[in-house]
Structure formats: structure tokens, C-alpha cells
């Protein structure tokens, strides 16, 4: 299990990130790596400093599959903000990912 915290906003050092994701993979397959890269890219572009991605490799933690009702690999769960959302696949379609996670796209000027 490894945690990839996004960069925190320096002005709000004590607040936890508003966005929390958990990505389930099974070994570092091309598809899993792609899912992580696609998620990371969207987060960096739109939620910079305000998100956290937890990656769970089911090959290392097989018991987690039952507890979290995981069948498909890769599986992404949006834990925060509620309600939880589940997306399966390598997240190749960025527009659908944004829609699925209900992330509002930032203007290019704020980047």
C-alpha cells in the first residue's frame, strides 16, 4: 500500500485534502500504470494540492478485495467528497473521468 499525497496548499497547511481517491490494482500492469497516470494527470490539473491518492495492490493485500467489493481491475473509488463513487477501467477518457468524479475543470488562467 503506498500513498501518494498531492502537494498541499501552503496557505491551508492544517486542512486535510478535500479530495480522496483509492485506486485498486493487481500488480504493476500497463493498465494499472495507465490508470494511475490518467488519474494523477487530472488531479494535478484540477485539484492540485488538494487531493490524495491511495494505491492498493491486491496482489500484496488480497484480503482487501473482499472488504471493498472489488472485482474489476483497475477500480477507482472516490472516497471524498461523499458520496463514494466507483469507476472501473484504465480511465483513458479524461472527459468521462472528470464527469464521473464530478470535478469542475479549472480555467487555464488559474493554472
Amino acid at each position: 500500500m503506498k500513498t501518494q499525497p498531492g502537494l498541499r496548499n501552503k496557505n491551508e497547511p492544517d486542512l486535510p485534502p478535500e479530495w480522496g481517491f483509492r485506486l485498486y490494482i493487481a500488480g504493476e500492469t500497463p493498465r494499472s500504470l495507465a490508470a494511475f497516470a490518467n488519474l494523477k494527470r487530472v488531479c494535478e490539473s484540477n485539484l492540485k494540492g488538494n487531493y490524495e491518492i491511495e494505491v492498493i495492490d491486491l496482489q500484496l493485500h488480497p484480503a482487501r478485495a473482499k472488504g471493498d467489493q472489488i472485482l474489476a481491475i483497475p477500480s477507482l473509488i472516490r472516497l471524498m467528497p461523499p458520496p463514494t463513487k466507483k469507476i472501473i477501467g484504465d480511465l483513458a477518457n479524461e472527459q468521462r473521468l472528470l464527469m464521473g468524479l464530478e470535478i469542475t475543470v479549472r480555467n487555464s488562467s488559474t493554472n
Binding site: 493487481a26 478485495a65 473482499k66 474489476a72 483497475p74 477500480s75 472501473i88 477501467g89
Partner: peptide
């Protein structure tokens, strides 16, 4: 209704669950 699809996937999670049990 709780799951949406985006891109390629397989059911390795099912195999891992079954294998673990």
C-alpha cells in the same frame, strides 16, 4: 448504478478474492 466504466479492465479482483478465500 454504482459503477461506471472508463477504459479497459479485467476481473482480476474476482480471481484474487476467490484465490484468497
Amino acid at each position: 448504478n454504482e459503477i461506471s466504466e472508463n477504459g479497459g479492465f479485467d476481473l482480476e479482483g474476482l480471481f484474487i478474492r476467490l484465490g484468497n478465500a
